[in-house]
Design a binder for these strands. Structure first.
Lengths: 160, 160
DNA sequence: CTCCTAGAGTTGACGTGACAACTGTAGCGC
DNA sequence: GCGCTACAGTTGTCACGTCAACTCTAGGAG
């Protein structure tokens, strides 16, 4: 039995169903968030992260690190959110560079409202249809995958 | 114990890890597809679907149905792919409406090459790190979720 | 024939996400 | 101080995906 180079029909089917389920779920959650709180999933992520920082101003790099987003993605997102008056970029550097990022009042209340609502939507769409076995399997797979992709060669971090 | 309205920290963690894993996986697969075959995941999907139709021309609605995409998404994608000479829209209706969609020679060869390569990438990134238990759990969850979201009230399909 | 409705396909606007290139600041060696 | 490098943040470009609006065609009612 030579190693099969292609996926079996069953594997394709599983792959397809998995991708499909994921996309439907994401779309559903995003729609609800948009409808109920007027924000998107990406905006929600930023709002939550800033909300958890309480009063402390965050920097772009810090946000990028915390969200595991690319810097440019954060910058673009902040520009849009600044236009929508959800966040505030304060001038800190001497030149035109702005570094400190804060929630506006509108952003803060949006965050507080959305966290509860979005959480219960996640529960409704995701956790309620999830058996403990499935949860364990998905958790294990998630961490495997993150490790595998994030740190393909971890030899750099260990003291060698 | 009143029903908790918000997710537990563990649930948030699982949710976050899962989203993260998914995004990393998708990005990785898309990058490889782009690097090795010069096409994106969306283009791949269209190419495969048209490839499986062999010589038969497909219509936009048929493609949308088969891929479970919105019509407009298909139209936009076809426009991009037409510009890149991967597909061909043939005139069929009397007016300026184009209905028949075919692969170009370039599209056909791209499809044939990519199917093998992409399949083995999926195997490498997804199936190799997946135990049978995990596969079963993920499959079950996927179908549950698709059913739940796609057909929230299925009373229309059964002969009433 | 005209209006109405339904369906297929298209288009525009907008937010999202990735990548590359650019700007400005700071530390370092000369 | 000048150039080198590293780093932080920004910007442009492009592809993706959704929603709403639009066009064109066909079928039925008046």
């Amino acid at each position: 039995m030579a190693e099969p180079r292609t996926l079996s029909p069953e594997q394709w089917e599983l792959w397809h169903a998995w991708m499909q389920a994921h996309r439907l779920l994401q779309r559903e959650l995003d729609r609800d968030l948009q409808r109920d709180y007027g924000i998107s999933k990406a905006e929600f992520s930023v709002l939550v992260t800033l909300h958890e920082a309480r009063d402390r101003e965050m920097r772009v790099g810090e946000l990028a690190e915390s969200l595991d987003w690319e810097k440019s993605r954060v910058a673009h997102q902040l520009t849009r959110m600044e236009n929508r008056d959800l966040v505030d970029r304060t001038d800190r550097e001497s030149s035109g560079r702005r570094a400190g990022i804060r929630l506006t009042a509108k952003g803060r209340s949006a965050a507080q409202n959305a966290i509860v609502g979005h959480g219960s939507n996640i529960r409704r769409y995701f956790f309620e249809a999830l058996s403990p076995d499935q949860a364990a399997a998905i958790q294990a797979w998630s961490h495997q995958t993150i490790d595998r992709i994030e740190a393909p060669d971890s030899k750099l971090t260990s003291g060698g």
